[in-house]
């Protein structure tokens, strides 16, 4: 408990610990944590005041830096519409991770699970019992679990890889020992509109096809109208339902895309872009802790939550498409 809490402190606290004369080891845990927190706060405020004193309160606007270039896709290999750029790299990374880690762990399954296997088993239970089996009957669940599970893991890995800074920004290069390497940047395949759109279209096509196979084309279209609606009212309701079916593509896409893009944007701005644009040093120091907190929030909650939502809604749509009564 104690160790994890101190480990969870922002990394800035680390150098200060070394510089201080070692605190009395006999001090009880609570007191030392409080002292460390106060120390971090003190360093933060002192840094803020020092930066304002050195560089002044007003900054000069920087017109050269364009934050939208962080999301610009530069073709590395030109192949027309199949050009390879950084989004493709992230897609391949996520796909390789999904396939690689899962087959590796499945090959090494043991009777007595180690920690990684236990975590993957928990993940499997979440995907199988909570997401898939709760939305459809057993036969359907057995048939569609691979699809939903893969979708979940692919989006999860895609989101998580996006929060690791990788040297992919070929727009701006940095010089390390005479070598031009691309600067490190955050990017995720799911922060590009086309990737979630393709995933959502796949989901739409699969549940429509499954519904038509279960009920026939006419039966499926009839099934769109909720039970209990009869007579003349059925016609406008039918069009509304068709429209809401098409809106599902849009809502699945935008939910995933905008969540990840907004997460990346806000991390970018909090962790320095705002300070660079406005050209004031103290602002960067001021927003850095918020950047770290938001980063932890995005990695810990949003990445997994969005994958969970996408998979859950897929399961619900699939289950709804074959259900006898709407």
């Amino acid at each position: 408990m104690n160790a994890t809490e101190t480990g969870g402190l922002p990394p800035r606290a680390a150098p200060e610990e070394g510089r201080l004369p070692a605190p009395a080891p006999a001090a009880d845990g609570k007191g030392s944590i409080k002292r460390k927190l106060l120390l971090v706060l003190g360093v933060y405020l002192a840094g803020l005041i020092a930066l304002i004193a050195i560089y002044g309160f007003k900054g000069t606007r920087n017109e050269a830096f364009k934050p939208q270039n962080e999301f610009k896709l530069e073709n590395w290999v030109n192949l027309g519409i199949f050009s390879i750029n950084k989004a493709v790299l992230y897609l391949i990374l996520a796909a390789a991770l999904t396939a690689g880690t899962m087959t590796y762990i499945a090959r090494r399954m043991q009777q007595r699970p180690n920690k990684v296997q236990a975590a993957v088993e928990a993940l499997f239970r979440l995907m199988h019992d909570n997401i898939t089996a709760s939305a459809m009957d057993e036969r359907m669940a057995a048939k569609w679990f691979p699809f939903i599970g893969t979708l979940f893991l692919f989006i999860l890995f895609s989101n998580l890889v996006g929060y690791i800074p990788l040297p992919t920004n070929t727009e701006n290069e940095i010089n390390v020992l005479g070598l031009q390497i691309p600067s490190f940047s955050l990017y995720a395949a799911t922060a590009n509109l086309s990737v979630p759109l393709v995933l959502a279209l796949t989901v739409f096509v699969s549940y429509t096809v499954e519904g038509i196979r279960a009920k026939g084309p006419i039966g499926y279209l009839k099934g769109l109208v909720p039970g209990g609606v009869e007579g003349g009212m059925a016609i406008p309701i039918f069009f509304l339902e068709v429209l809401s079916n098409l809106m599902r593509i849009l809502s699945l896409t935008i939910r995933l895309f905008a969540n990840i893009l907004a997460g990346h944007l806000i991390i970018l701005f909090m962790a320095g872009a705002l300070a660079v644009i406005l050209g004031s040093a103290w602002l960067g120091w001021f927003t850095l802790p918020f950047g770290i907190i938001l980063f932890a929030f995005e990695v810990g909650l949003v990445a997994a939550l969005q994958a969970f939502i996408f998979a859950t809604l897929t399961a619900i749509y699939l289950g709804g498409a074959v259900a006898r009564d709407h």
Binding site: Q68, R255, A258, L305
Partner: peptide, 27 residues
């Protein structure tokens, strides 16, 4: 808890619809 997270994500998405519309208008 499961339903709560589902509802949370669905509600949060509506914020992003507004934000995307705003970004479209601005840029």
């Amino acid at each position: 808890t499961q339903l709560q997270w589902l509802g949370f994500a669905l509600t949060e998405a509506t914020f992003f619809y507004g934000l995307v519309a705003g970004l479209l208008a601005a840029f």
